[in-house]
Amino acid sequence: MVVTVRLHTTLRRETPQGIVDRVELELGEGSTLRTAVDALGISLREDAILLVVNGRIADVETPLAEGDEVRLIPAMSGG
């Protein structure tokens, strides 16, 4: 299955081709959010990154399905 991962703010990546803030991931059936995060090589700092699937808060055990939109959001607030 293929899922889309959006990388917010400080998780964006600078590459020779430019800044990457959207990645399409090919994952095996039964994959969870942890699989996606591991595939991207991102270390999850507790309370520092919000995991969101299709607009709802999720956790590393959340199962993924074809076409899901995952957001990895360095947690921030407004003022």
């Binding site: 959006r6 917010h8 703010t9 400080t10 700092r45 520092a48 919000l50 969101v52 607009g55 957001r71 959001i73 360095p74 947690a75 921030m76 607030s77 407004g78 003022g79």
Partner: peptide
């Protein structure tokens, strides 16, 4: 605090994509 780095580089404007992400 990791949040300070976000504010330094993106300011509160970083919330636009986050709020959009939550619909």
């Amino acid at each position: 605090h990791p949040q300070s780095a976000i504010y330094r580089d993106y300011g509160t404007a970083g919330l636009a994509m986050m709020t959009y992400g939550f619909g």
